[in-house]
Design a protein around this nucleic acid. Structure first.
Lengths: 138, 138
DNA sequence: CACAATATCGTACAAATGTACGATGTCAAG
DNA sequence: CTTGACATCGTACATTTGTACGATATTGTG
């Protein structure tokens, strides 16, 4: 069902940086890494190359270097990742996960309120919108 | 902060089986695997050994074979796993995850109602209970 | 008690992942 | 142009993970 290989931890880390700026070069990713996470330039480069090989990113020559841009929409990757996770940990049931989050106080009072608002919204929309999910071609 | 190495996918899969029956032998795990997932006896054995080596399970001779039992409480492992996941995907924010689940219709109407009930419950308990989290020693 | 069945133990090995080196190409400034 | 700075490309290599083999120990049953 999912054609492309899944993301490793390190790959997800750099993919998120690329997503956050709609595309990035090796150096940009390197600079966007959180303080303390000091990977080598070459290492980041390897992750970006692998992301392209796995089908998650496109490349385009941009002056001196290469610009990596999203090929699959981030939201879709996130959904797939969540889905995989829920299957591995809760047999595909989403509710137990949410239950854990609430029981474990992972939401502030404010967030609980926001969540409640979301539920109100969700109640509204019965008609199932099939959420388009093509890939972005270069 | 987390002393023990994290679980790999295959390890989590068998750990969950051990948890579900409060302990299991290699054969029991093998038989509890979902149809279609046919691992070799030796393979399951390796995963169980690794789980012990990583500190997740205890072992006890049980007649002919070895019984593997939980050493760390499943709930704690689940929490840690969720926590790690949320950090890797959402910088530690739980709400965006829940939002995704709702937006992506991962909860049935019934589950949405249950969730609402949970929120009502959560509203009740302001005093923060610090959730004990020791390990189960043999 | 001997044996067939079933365990365990030590080990193996390929693929995936994390991390990086050396050689080579390119471009902007002197 | 030449050179230095910074890129890319091909490759490497240790660790972790997925999966399993062969040798040896244990045990219920004929």
């Amino acid at each position: 069902m999912t054609p492309r290989p899944s993301l490793s931890k390190a790959e997800l880390e750099v993919a998120r940086i690329v997503w956050s700026r709609k595309g990035a070069t090796v150096r940009q990713v390197l600079e966007a890494l959180p303080a303390g996470r000091d990977l080598d330039y070459k290492t980041v480069q390897t992750y970006l190359r692998r992301l392209e090989a796995k089908g998650y990113l496109n490349t385009r020559r941009e002056g001196r270097g290469i610009l990596y841009t999203p090929r699959v929409r981030p939201g879709q990757v996130v959904r797939e990742t969540i889905n995989d996770f829920i299957h591995r940990l809760f047999d595909g049931e989403a509710l137990p996960l949410v239950e854990y989050l609430i029981q474990d106080r992972r939401l502030t009072d404010d967030e609980l309120a926001q969540l409640r608002a979301m539920l109100d919204q969700a109640e509204q929309r019965s008609p199932k919108k099939p959420a388009s999910r093509q890939e972005l071609q270069p």
